[in-house]
Amino acid sequence: MTETTVAEVMAELAALEEPKVRAVNEKHGDDHGVNLTKLRAVAKRLKVQQDLAVELWQTKDSAARLLALLICRPKLFAQDELDTMLREASTPKVQDWLVNYVVKKNPHVEDLRVIWMADPDPVVESAGWALTTERVAKKPDGLDLAGLLDVIEARMKDAPDRLQWAMNHCLAQIGIEHPQLRARALGIGERLEVLKDYPTPPGCTSPFAPIWITEMVRRQDGG
């Protein structure tokens, strides 16, 4: 792809910038002002373009990086490329999309999960927990679920926000998916009280693990 194409896309993203959207995003630690529905419309028009995606990522602009993650081919990235990209993903939304839209579809996902779970950077480690939560739900064989609960019990209360959120999601997923560990997961959630007072909009389920687990199990049972 030519430099002009990147310039054209950047100009289009700049034109889509909305101060009100940026203000809302900045409250969540993100630094772009493009409505995500409009961003997805741009991606739909561009279709899959791996070379353009790589160039857009290199701009370091958050909106461009989000677009890049929508138009890339996830399986084409090498393991070390994805590791570098995660460490460069400076905002929660970019990290979230990178993990969910790209890493989860990449053949190196399990190797990256193991590496990131052991990383000293809490933001990188949170990505490892996100991938672990995916395995808890879809491929739990081989995971030490009780051991994960041990780590969550010992560390979640004092973990930085993004890591705490990721650990909490894993705690809830274990409780939802694995009945034999549900009582322990509920107990950990009750004792630690992480996200107990999190403001939850009407009609949404609280991220407080005991409420989350109980509600999802009720739905699974047809309650």
Rank of each mutant, 00 (worst) to 15 (best):
L39P: 14
A23C: 00
P207Y: 01
L76T: 03
W212P: 05
T205Q: 03
V54Q: 08
Q164T: 00
L143E: 03
A166P: 00
E81C: 06
E125P: 00
D111G: 08
E193Q: 14
D161K: 04
R65E: 06
L16A: 15
K157L: 07
F208R: 01
L52G: 10
G223S: 09
L46Q: 10
Q58L: 04
Q49S: 09
Q49R: 15
A89C: 05
A146T: 13
K93H: 03
E88A: 06
I71M: 05
V54T: 12
V109S: 15
S62T: 07
D61G: 05
D96L: 06
M10N: 07
S62D: 15
R65M: 06
P74I: 03
R113D: 00
T59N: 07
D144H: 02
V48F: 07
P201E: 13
A14L: 07
A78T: 12
I176N: 07
N35R: 03
N100G: 13
G128M: 04
R191F: 11
V103I: 15
Q220Y: 08
E215R: 07
V94A: 12
W212L: 08
D30K: 03
T205W: 01
A130Q: 14
P122I: 09
M1T: 13
G203S: 07
R87S: 12
A15G: 12
T132M: 07
R162P: 00
R113P: 00
P201I: 10
L192T: 14
L56I: 11
S90L: 05
E81L: 06
K157C: 03
H169R: 12
D111P: 00
E18R: 14
F77M: 05
R184L: 02
P122W: 15
L148F: 11
I71L: 04
V6S: 02
N106A: 06
T59F: 09
P199K: 05
D80H: 13
K93C: 00
E81V: 10
D96P: 00
A209V: 10
R218Y: 01
L163Q: 08
D197Y: 10
Q220D: 11
R135H: 06
P179R: 10
P210I: 06
L131K: 12
A41R: 06
L112E: 08
V151F: 04
Q50L: 04
R218N: 10
G33A: 12
P199R: 05
T133E: 15
V151T: 15
G189N: 08
E55M: 09
E153D: 15
G189D: 10
L69C: 03
R73Q: 14
P120Q: 12
P201H: 09
